[in-house]
Amino acid sequence: MDDLRYEAPDSPDAASSMLAEAGAGGRVFAGGTDVMVQIHAELIDPDVIVDIKKIPGIMSISESGGAYTFGAATAGMVLMAHEGFASTWPGIIDGVALIGSIQVKGRASVGGNVCNASPAADSTPAMIAAGAICNIVGPNGSREAPVEDIVTGPGKTSLAAGEFILSFTMPARAPHSGDAYLRLTPRTEMDIAVVGAGVNLTLDDAGTCTAARVSLGAVAPTPLLVAEAADALIGTKVDEAALAKMGEACSAACNPISDKRGTKEYRIKTASVIAQRAAQIALERAREN
């Protein structure tokens, strides 16, 4: 606590070398909505805070050939206000919109949500379902990784020392495809997911599901990409039977704990319910698209 330094580098390289140098004592600081709480609760005690928000492009959204790229530190409110992005990836917006309050979203970023590595993070399952790719920079240059490869456990990521996420790239949206994220919380807002589910699916002209990705949050140490759940939808008209089967696959994939936010049994039971409801919303969106 004695030598805490605040740095706000203006290039990715400067940031990654500062982080590499600081090692375990370094902390990326984007919106700070997790970091500030953790400092206050004395859960972390960093030596260096590396505020990445001055890095060019890390707070902005761009599009090329239907594929969106957005900076990892882009605030939730900025993403939500971007009409093109929001209408293309409504499921990600569902997830982002659920993060904290308007005030929290005035700062909170998807990069922070993913890298804070909470099993219950709301945008992460939506990003995984969407098939988002992370553009990572580090001391040894840059690399890409799908979002599902980032979180390795509660508070733990696969990012190496000095690495951080610069931006996310979304695949171009296929026709007749749609995504949705839904969570279960006791309150309507300002709550942490007891269960979260992100679904992204694509239909053919006849309305048969040709591709799907289903991701669950808060039911295991990391957000899950549940292939069996997606398989239950692919090749079907996403009818009741297919949804029920997908729900079962979701419940089967759960490996939750009982804690202050919900019991194990409750999570397993409701994972199926929430995933089915999310899939229904995704289906409607896909049909409209």
Binding site: P186, R187, T188, E189, M190, I192, D259, K260, R261
Partner: peptide, 24 residues
Amino acid sequence: YIYGEDGRLQNAGFLDYRMPVASD
């Protein structure tokens, strides 16, 4: 109030204590 096995209070904050917010 939610306690752990160790007798410690586990939800000592508004987020997990869950008072009604305006939208509730």
